[in-house]
Design a protein around this nucleic acid. Structure first.
Lengths: 408, 408
DNA sequence: GGCGTTCGTCCAGACACTTGACAAAGGCAG
DNA sequence: CTGCCTTTGTCAAGTGTCTGGACGAACGCC
């Protein structure tokens, strides 16, 4: 294990500066004295730091606030548009990129389909997306964040393995850094999404597990205010834990992985079977209707949701079963980590109550009551494309320290 | 969420002082210049800190080392006996306490049976143990560490719930602190043991999962060099995650918890059944022999181990089944955390190869190969009563910063 | 014995936080 | 309206701690 590095005065300053910035970000508008009270720093120090921030354009004075018995405070606010960040979601179907301000507000989004794109061609598309967005940027570009499927060495930005794009040990971070000359952060999509939820949702939490359930299943862990990556940057790869002993073969080669029983793909597969088995059922009618329009059209999760609302009991059971398998995994997470906030997102989340109730029920049923009684399992607030936002959040955290939770 | 606290110069100093101490602890004997190279600090700063440490008796010069082309370095070593720590293991059957030096070497151990002891009577026994040990102490007492079953608020040392001792929200930390006037750390036994393995075993790891398998099952997580407690101090409570859908009732009231299928209790119960089913089998003969000596005598894990060595296939299958259930949980841990070092300990560890091979096999079979290929699942090195040692380690970490893994 | 190297220490300087003081700016009582 | 109290923001002085340069001491090598 590498020996830790020393502490210096510059680090102290950087830490306290980040603290002030974060106070403005989370609690602004606020006065210098207010920040001092919040952070424990003296008014003097806060004043110095704030002046630097105002010089950098990251904060500005917005006039006086109400007096509380003395001189009226000069209120400061964080300048959301002081910098821009490019957040990129390298999805399985499309690459989506956005110009995002420091508050996570999307200014502009562009996307490209990725059908069949691999290797260097895929990298070129990423370059194009970045260049198109930078042309339209008004504020200084703080950096580029990338969320991608697969396992990513987030310390260097090297993508160890992304099957669908045929990327192996691709140093995407380094490539983008040299080409575009700004800081770059790359991380797995599920982890990025977790950071987005941590940073941009209304309540900040110290510990958080965010689980994506879409075509694949993955989790992102925020522990102590920071993303946890694990020894091999594979923390949260829960989609390929075997949960069904008699399960079907997974694309990873094993049988009965969580993905084979709880992902969108798994649900749609079983819904399609149910439709074929009973063409007069709600799901059957929807399948017929969809196929009538365009023969190759397949059922969607919206169809599944609608079928349940129309009282299709077999489909409801399919969804509940999928939810229960996920709940089994969640119970394990609760037992291992005792984290109170578990957030679910991804396409399957649109199934709503029938699904999440099954997840909750099974998670509670299978974990120690003393632990699970305080656990909240919720759907993510709708704050946009979580992976893209999370990619941006990676940068805000790395460059501005906006999410670091702990003291030094 | 509470706002983080500011960084000060004192913290910088404390951090760097801990860094120097740790360099001496882990890499000593070493010169001031060597510590400077290791830590990145200047020789000046290291010299100052070292002089303080020598003044406190925590380090001493032990003469000159070999020259590497210039002035021979003055070698410094950590003084293991500069302070003593009392480590206490509040086991289910006995309370065991030891006077331990800073290297984890046990100087003296005493214990008391706890049969039927509850409430304040149990607290009184803890006091007695401490007082008996302090009477014999030569070096200054650095503090008291306690490992206990149940859920413990480690930040205050309050035991939320320990069923067997009938303790509910007992502020044991506060009680011991005021009575004995030294720093006190209290934590769950499994977490304490994990810290002992992290601190006292030959290789230090940044991330570690240590799983106790005895009468109960629990885990301790070391993440980023520090114990992870979770939101409700219940991280690692894996014994009561339901893993067997058709399982037996657990003492926690649910059915099919990991403890009901993988604990020492579970294994012995099934071994006893096997013995009764076939009195001529190795395990049957052992049961008969044991009962002949004293009628109430029960089978032990040593009997189980011996029976397997004697070729008792049904008993081997019992052990393998227990190991596989644990492996299932370990697979989940690997998927969720991607931690490469998993250490098993507790009484069941004495079953050796047949058991741990089953754990390994099942864990690998059920987790993503890309993750599990680098995972090592091993038995703990035999370094004594892990809970007692861990209780001591809690203090070394809290007071001397000997385990903190990260930079500021 | 001279030279280069390494070690430990001393001293000056830089950096960043703290403390105390003060002017500016507000509310409130009389 | 005046005087007093409170709060804010800044300035100057002080302190703690790291850094960097320099120097004597100690050692190996030629």
């Amino acid at each position: 294990m590498a020996f830790p590095t020393r502490a210096t005065h510059q680090q102290t300053r950087a830490y306290n500066a980040a603290l002030v910035l974060r106070a403005l970000y989370d609690f602004g508008p606020i006065s210098r004295a207010g920040v001092a009270r919040l952070s424990g720093l003296t008014r003097t120090t806060v004043g110095e730091v704030v002046n630097d921030l105002v010089g950098d354009g990251l904060a500005r004075e917005i006039g006086r606030g109400p007096s509380t018995g003395g001189k009226a405070p000069i209120l400061l606010e964080f300048v959301d548009g002081a910098r821009h960040v490019i957040g990129i979601d390298l999805g399985e179907l499309v690459f989506r990129a956005a110009l995002v301000d420091l508050r996570g507000q999307v200014q502009r989004t562009i996307e490209r389909p990725v059908s069949g794109l691999t290797g260097n061609d895929a990298v070129r598309v990423v370059h194009e997306l970045i260049e198109e967005l930078t042309r339209g940027a008004r504020a200084t570009l703080l950096g580029i964040g990338v969320g991608t499927p697969g396992i990513v060495d987030a310390s260097t930005g090297t993508i160890r393995r992304a099957v669908n794009l045929d990327w192996n040990d691709l140093p995407l971070g380094e490539i983008l850094r040299t080409r575009h000359g700004v800081p770059v952060e790359v991380a797995n999509d599920s982890r990025a999404a977790a950071l987005a939820i941590e940073l941009f949702s209304s309540r900040r939490r110290n510990n958080l597990v965010a689980i994506t359930v879409g075509r694949g299943i993955g989790a992102g862990l925020v522990l102590g205010g920071e993303l946890f990556h694990g020894d091999g940057f594979g923390a949260g790869e829960i989609g390929h834990v075997v949960v069904d002993d008699d399960g079907a073969e997974c694309r990873c080669g094993r049988f009965g992985c969580l993905e084979t029983v709880a992902s969108a793909t798994a649900i749609l597969l079983r819904a399609t079977e149910a439709a074929a088995a009973d063409p007069t059922s709600p799901i059957g009618l929807r399948a017929t209707y969809a196929a009538a329009a365009t023969p190759a059209t397949r059922l969607t999760l919206a169809d599944v949701r609608a079928a349940i609302d129309e009282g299709d009991e077999p489909v409801r059971r399919i969804v509940v079963t999928a939810g229960r398998f996920l709940g089994q995994m969640v119970a394990g997470v609760i037992g291992v980590l005792d984290i109170e906030h578990i957030v679910l997102h991804g396409s399957v989340a649109q199934l709503g109550e029938p699904w999440i109730d099954a997840v909750r029920d099974e998670a509670r049923r299978r974990s120690l009551r003393l632990l699970s009684q305080d656990v909240s399992i919720e759907l993510a607030e709708p704050i946009g494309d979580l992976v893209m936002m999370g990619a941006s959040a990676l940068l805000l955290t790395a460059e501005l320290g906006l999410a670091a939770g702990r003291a030094a």
